[in-house]
Every structure is written in structure tokens, then in C-alpha cells.
Amino acid sequence: MPQTIRIANDQLSVDVSSLGAEMQSLQSADGRDWLWNGDAAWWTGRSPILFPIVGKAPDDLLAVNGKTYPMAQHGLARRREFQLVEQTEDACCHKLVSTAETRAVYPFDFRLSLEHRLDGQSLSVTATVENTGDALLPFGIGFHPAFLWPLPGADGKPHTMTLDNGAEPGVVQLEGGLIGKTLPASPFKAGRLALEHSLFDNDALIFPEGAGTGLTFGAEGGPSLHFAFDNLPNIALWQKPGAPFLCIEPWHGMAAHAGGTAELVERPYTVALAKGESMRFGFAVTISG
């Protein structure tokens, strides 16, 4: 059975499950909850880790050197039990290592470590991928945290997304869960997006590049969440239309192209690690207001 642990400081507390090393709650000392609660009426996820793919594979089949393997959307890690390897008062680290079962669907040796760490009003989540085998290790990785929308105490207030870099990044349309055409205009204007539920009528908004390394999700005259991204060039925003949450998803890797190949190495932004190499990816979120 999954085990849930808590880390805390004098400003924040976080619960993390061993299943998927998935964060279950993010609460400030005043009792406000910031993370989506996983209500099955909308979406059971809360903050899954996406590995070794982000998004869908064609017909849920992933190809490696011409051989196909079954692979569900967003990969295998979110449905696996991680081992707790370290815990302090304000931090914890879980790991997932390859097994015969994982190699049957993803034929590589790896170690995936996921750390949650608190520092004042900030939470950082860091993933480290290590190639523990002899072959080149290809993968995509991403984070899928869902935050309450409206933010706590901000019912009825307009909410916005503001990019630190003030850009108007291009956006792509999903076609059956796969990467389709680029839309003609960015929804951002001078780095600002007024959030409306109708934005997600046709699935996620995906920004392959140009959204930068930080953004703020906030309510007018109310609280806000500032995000900083490390080694995560792709950003997606998603909700089930009308749901009381918004997913802010930084990725290094995306779904396969619609009408394209199922080969893992051909997926957009795939990472490839040589034997013995490792790479880190992470985001931090800071609560204000």
C-alpha cells in the first residue's frame, strides 16, 4: 500500500505519496490549501511525474529501434511505487529504479529520483534521471501539478498568467492527444494571459518554446503563485473545462507528432543520456498573498 509522508516548515507543509512520489497536498500555515485535491469527479491526479514520455504515443505504442512497446499517456512512473530514500523535517527524496517489469515496456536501465524541499514560502521539486545501463537512455520528463482555480480566497476575482520574459510564445493544438498544427496567434499579449475556462475547450495549451523560465499565476488584488523552471523548455496549461483547478506543466519532452513516427528518439525534445550520465530537471513555486 502507498505510504504518505509529510514535510513541513513554519510556513508550508507538503504531503507526498510513495505512489508516483506524487505530492498530495500543499498547505500554508494559515490552513489554506493550494494544490488540487484529486476529486475523481474531475481528475484524480494532483501532481504526477511524467516519465519516460510526456503526453501520448500513437495508439499508446512506443517504438524503440523499430520494436513497439505498450506505453500509456505520460509514461509509467506515475503508477509505480517509489522508495523513500531520505527524509528530513523539510525535505524528502524518493527513487524509482528499473526492474524486469519496467524493462518489458521501456527496455532501459535507469534511476529516477524525485526530491521535494521547502524553503520559507517556496517549494522546489527536482527530478534527477540517471542512466544505469550500457545503452543510450532516451526519455522525456515533465511535471503536472494542479493548483486551485480560483486560488484560495480569490473567488470571483479575475485570474491571469504572466510570463517573466513578457513574450508571446507560439502555441500548438493537440490532435487526438498528439502534437498537431501551430495556431496562428499566441494567446499571450505582452506576456499576459487573461484566464478563462473556454481557453481549454479544445484541450491543453502547449507552448513548445519561448515561454521562458518563470511565470506568475495570480488573482487580481489577491494571492499569487510564482514559478521558476530549470531545464524545462516546454510549458503546458490544462484543465478539464470548467474544473476548479489549473495545471501548470513544465516539460522537457512532448507528445509524438500527429501522423508521425512512434519512435521514442523522434519525439520532440527527447533527452538522450550516455552510460553513467545524469541530468536534473525541476521547478519551484513561491506563494504570495
Rank of each mutant, 00 (worst) to 15 (best):
G222Q: 08
H197Y: 00
A243M: 05
N202F: 01
G214A: 13
A262M: 01
H252R: 15
L195H: 14
A219R: 14
F245T: 01
P250T: 00
G210I: 02
N231Q: 13
N234C: 15
E209W: 02
I235Q: 15
G218V: 08
A190H: 14
C247W: 05
I248T: 06
P223T: 02
P187T: 08
A256P: 03
C247P: 00
L195I: 12
G212Y: 07
A236P: 00
P233D: 10
P241D: 04
P233S: 04
A258F: 05
L215S: 08
H197K: 00
P241Q: 12
H252M: 06
L215V: 07
D203I: 01
D230Y: 09
A255G: 09
E209H: 09
W251R: 13
P233Y: 06
P208D: 12
A190N: 15
A256Q: 08
P241Y: 07
F200S: 02
E263G: 11
A185I: 13
F229R: 15
A211I: 04
G242Q: 03
F217H: 15
A258D: 06
F188C: 04
W238N: 02
E220Q: 15
L193M: 13
P187I: 02
D203F: 00
A190W: 05
A190F: 07
F227D: 06
E249Y: 10
L264N: 05
I248S: 10
N202G: 07
K240S: 00
P208C: 10
R192W: 13
M254E: 13
K189M: 08
L264K: 11
S224C: 14
A236T: 11
A236N: 06
P233H: 04
L225C: 15
F200A: 01
K240C: 01
L195R: 04
G259T: 05
G260I: 03
G221T: 07
G210R: 00
G218Y: 03
D203S: 14
S198E: 14
G259M: 07
W238I: 03
A243V: 01
A185G: 01
A204S: 12
K240Y: 01
F227R: 15
P244M: 12
P223K: 00
G191D: 03
G214Y: 09
T213V: 04
A219F: 11
L237G: 06
F245N: 02
I206Y: 06
L193F: 08
P208W: 04
T261Q: 11
T261G: 11
A262E: 04
G191R: 09
F229D: 11
P244H: 07
A185K: 04
F227T: 11
N231T: 05
P250A: 11
G259E: 08
N234P: 06
E196P: 15
L232D: 14
A262D: 06
H226R: 15
A236G: 07
G242H: 03
G210S: 02
F245P: 05
P241L: 14
L199P: 00
A256G: 10
F188R: 04
A211T: 10
L246M: 07
F245W: 08
F188I: 01
E220G: 10
D230P: 03
A204L: 06
